[in-house]
Structure formats: structure tokens, C-alpha cells
Nucleic acid binder design. Sequence first.
DNA 1: CCCACATGAGACATCTTTGTCTCACCATGG
DNA 2: CCATGGTGAGACAAAGATGTCTCATGTGGG
Lengths: 192, 192
Amino acid sequence: MSHVGYPCLMALDRDHVLRSAAALLTRKSTATMDEVAKAAGISRATLHRHFAGRDALVRALEALGIAECEAALAAARLDEGPAADAVHRLVREIEPAAGLLAFLYTENQLFEGEGQNQGWTRIDDRVAALFRRGQRSGEFRIDLTPAWLTEALYGLLASAAWAVSEGRVAPKDFTHMIVELLLGGARRREES
Amino acid sequence: MSHVGYPCLMALDRDHVLRSAAALLTRKSTATMDEVAKAAGISRATLHRHFAGRDALVRALEALGIAECEAALAAARLDEGPAADAVHRLVREIEPAAGLLAFLYTENQLFEGEGQNQGWTRIDDRVAALFRRGQRSGEFRIDLTPAWLTEALYGLLASAAWAVSEGRVAPKDFTHMIVELLLGGARRREES
DNA sequence: CCCACATGAGACATCTTTGTCTCACCATGG
DNA sequence: CCATGGTGAGACAAAGATGTCTCATGTGGG
């Protein structure tokens, strides 16, 4: 053990391992602990020294996803300016985490048990509040509920992350694709 | 074995088992063969008499999904009338299969191996062709590629199916939510 | 130089799932 | 009544993943 107070390499490695695992599990959600370890460039033994087990790893991934979402929410300053601009900022800020979100989104195991992690509901609420603000200000239509718009945003983020990783769409279009579809839709807009 | 020419109950049961499995796996994609059997109201032994193994079951599910998609494509008459109306018909027709599609969409195992089932690419092409038709006719904007619109449609179908099964949105709004968001977007539209 | 410590490699038991098998049961038709 | 065949229950081994352990190695600091 390193002496308390001295920087421990494990703390630095842990983040690297977590991100490798996120990248791998995004592509192959059934990857084994051995594959996760290989992907991170460490042995299975060391992986177990970082995370007690697969559950702990997924929980840590979930915590990372929540943290990144909250960081994106904060950076996007959802309360400032037009709601449409805030959505744009949000998608731009959340883009780096989209792959991880896509994995967590499909890992219904997390929600299977009892109550889903409270962190997600708080995030959902803040995103839904943004859409509600846009509706109240008259920017957004009111026949699509904030809950659905929130859900749709997640779905589009996951779809886009997946489509990019498969090479079906260009990474640079990520934010534009999502924002334009979510806000503007596919129908050609008459000049306002 | 039943004599050839006489109706065999297994043929009828098979479809029921397949649909039960689809419903269960949509909610819990890691369900065991035992759980699948229980959900269908049969024993694991009988389940194995229908499908050689888990792989065969998933393959059968994939084939069912492809068949339902193609049936929906045919019923929606994508080539007739305005493209927007065709999209609406397509979503309406595909709604019953949305849960199954959502499961298959996340089962990246299917695409992991070599080349994804040819059936999917044919479906993708037909959907993308619909969006391309809308773009050429001037109905749809051209800065969102048909490939992305197709991907987004799948993502929204999956999100909506998931949101409905979680009770976050009303089932009766399914088609409206998807079509209006996909075509019109969240932004309030000026009167054209 | 020597020691502490993190690591990698691998052995090992355990658990879960799977696939196969057998056998008793029961319904249906002859 | 009896025979056929589908079914459920359960036993069983095989395979895969997991969690834990030990030991050798190498590196870095004292």
C-alpha cells in the first residue's frame, strides 16, 4: 500500500480503466471481465483490485455517466438564453459521454431492481425542466410532453453514438444532427 | 411426431413462444432460457424442442422482426402520396413490433460477428429511400442525411417503446409522438 | 543494496447457464 | 381399452464467467 498522503497510481489508473471499460462495453455490452481488463491493458487480477466485481464496475460506470451528465448540464447553463440554444449547448457538452450513455441506457439491469439510481431522476428532471421552459416561453410546441422530449433526446444520443461508431454518419455532424432533428424535425421549414 | 399433413400444435405454439420471448427479452435482455420458458408457460424441455438453443431463439426472433418490418413496409405503401404521410403510415404499422425492434436494436451481438443479416440492410435501404424521396420532392430538408433519419427513426421507435413500457408516456400517443418529433421537431412551427 | 508494493500470470473452486437425457404423466385417437 | 406422442419435471455433465488465492517479477524509494 502507498502511504496515505502520497499519490497512488491506482487513482489515476482507475479513471483510465473506467474509460476503457466504457468504450469496450459500448461496443460489446456482454464483454467479460477478462476482455475489459485486456482492453484497459491490465490483468484481470489488477482489474479486480480496482473494482470488486462486475457489479461494482457497472455501478462505477453508472456513477461516471451521471457525473458526466451533471457536468454537461452545468456547463450548458440550461437556464440562460433561449431554450433552443440551451439544448444545443447541452448536446454539445454531452457528446463525449454519448457512447457511455448509450451503454447505460441499454443496461436495463440498472433499473430492473427496485428504484433506479436517484441521480438519473434528477438529471431527467433538469432536462425535462428545460423543455418545459421552452414550452412556456413559446419556443417549443406543447403537444409533445417534456417527458417524451427527454426520452427522445436520450434515444437520439444513443442512436447517433451508435451510428457514428458504425461509420454510418460523420462524427463531426453529431451535434448538428441531433439538435436539428430534435428541434426542427425532418420536414422542411417554411421561412419564418 | 404428428403424421405429415396433420396440423401440429407445435407450429401454433411456436409463434406464441416467439412472441412471449420477444415481450420478455424486450424488458430483460439477459433473461435465461428458463425464464423465457416460464414466460411462455412451457417447460425448458419444450422450449428446446422448439428452438435448438439460445442462438436459434435469437435468430428466430431476428427473423420475426425482419418479417414484421417488411410487412409494415408493405402495408405502409411507402411509394404512394406525400413522403410525410408515408412515414406516418410506416410508424403506425410498425408500432406493434416496436418492442421487438428495440430488443434487436440493442442486441449488437447480431452485428458483432461478420455481416449483419442481409434482411436489415434491405429494410434500411427502403426506409432511407423514403426519406430520399421526401428530400427530392422538397418535403424534407436536405441537410439531414437519409442514413441519419433512418437511424433516428429506429432510435425513436426504441425510445418510445421503452418509455411506454415504463409508463412514462401514454401508449395511445406512440405514433403521434414519433411522427411529430421526427418530422416536425420540438420547435414551434410558424404557421405556413 | 534492500525492502515495500503494485502488477501479471495462473491455479482453483464456485456459480450460473446451457444442452441433453430419462422418465412419468396425460390427452387424444383408434 | 390401449397405444402414440407431446409435455413437464428433474438429473446430469459441459462450458463459461466469476471471485479468490498464491507466487514470481520488476520497479521505485529509502
